[in-house]
Design a protein around this nucleic acid. Sequence first.
DNA 1: GTCATGTTTGACAATCCTGTTAAACGCAAC
DNA 2: GTTGCGTTTAACAGGATTGTCAAACATGAC
Lengths: 222, 222
Amino acid sequence: MTVKSRRSREAPPPAADGDTEQRILEAAHRVFVRRGTAGARMQEIAAEAGVNHALLHYYFRSKAALARAVFQTVARRLLPPVMAALGSDAPIEEKVEQVIHLEIDHLSQHPFLPAYLIGELHHDPQRARELATAALQADPAQVRPRVMATLRRQIAEAVRAGTMRPITPEQFTVNLLSLCIFPFAARPMLTTMLGLDQKAYERFIAQRRAELPAFFLRALRP
Amino acid sequence: MTVKSRRSREAPPPAADGDTEQRILEAAHRVFVRRGTAGARMQEIAAEAGVNHALLHYYFRSKAALARAVFQTVARRLLPPVMAALGSDAPIEEKVEQVIHLEIDHLSQHPFLPAYLIGELHHDPQRARELATAALQADPAQVRPRVMATLRRQIAEAVRAGTMRPITPEQFTVNLLSLCIFPFAARPMLTTMLGLDQKAYERFIAQRRAELPAFFLRALRP
DNA sequence: GTCATGTTTGACAATCCTGTTAAACGCAAC
DNA sequence: GTTGCGTTTAACAGGATTGTCAAACATGAC
């Protein structure tokens, strides 16, 4: 267990020999997402980063601080793109398709983040505050009203044009995100209940990506 | 800290002075759902049940065994009603409304179970097996095909009658459950992002309960 | 009353986990 | 080369956590 053997006995460092701090953060990301904050062990993170576990405390003060850093990374990766897409000025029919494709493509690359986020927020709802302030680059109370106002205006115009039924922007948003996110968050449940292996699950998601926009737009029709 | 003081210093036992084993199970239910299996502490469960923590090991062998018992209780409470409703012989238009109302009413009484389930299954996907065998009273491989076959037949008939677009029973089911369950699982996220206090959240859910059936049925129309 | 049996408890053992520290290491500046 | 400084490590301290056990306790049978 000499110093030299350290690198060789560990799995290949994820990001080559990049910054130790960055390697630790990436290892922490994997372990916290996999086990949850409560179930994660500093020792496991250290092993996965290929460093002594004292280093975790050298770069990050404590487990709680490291967990917070990971949580904010996840929040920043997950929320801003959707908020931007939802609040854009694209016509609402196009926006629906854009959000669905963006979200499903994004989650296909990070399939475990929704379940991680839901679990963390459930066990420690106070983190929702971090979520909001960190994820939206500004105040939560500034971004949200603008997005909702844009949606409300677009919906009202479509209703006046007779192409859409009235719906609050909140219900619109939650309906859209439910259909996109839930199949990832509940993946283990779905694969078991529907008897899907990994390949079948991926086909299932691909089918949703194709069908959801039309499905959703039909539901909005008058 | 005499024996006699035990009862008086604890919070009022939840189920009066029922079976100790039952009181432990109910306390464990609350603590495991609140903190997750990894975050729960046997001591906290014992305190909440008003008993010495050695009793938890007397009635249940270990923390893992107690966690399994709670998990199966939750699974049994959550899944069978939905499966029954989904697989019933009611006309599919009525079924949609029945499932939505059943699910939202049920989850309104147990709002934290979806996030608990999602978190547990995410961190330990092997539990999905327990979920299936425990929740559906029989094999998972027996109930599922029957429910899906019923739905497939009903959808095919509606398609033939020209009242519905084709959709696989799997997508049908996941769409329906996503819209019902996600708002509960992601409650802390939604309340923060949409700026809802508890009252507003309850109104939001009530509105969904009223609007979702028509929303969903419109999406199915040809 | 006392005996037997199933409960309950306090105390303890063993391990696990987080966080600290002093020393070793490596390397750049001089 | 040696000095200084940021990095890394091994070892340890302190406390939390799960699990065990022998003894005390209650309660009904006799």
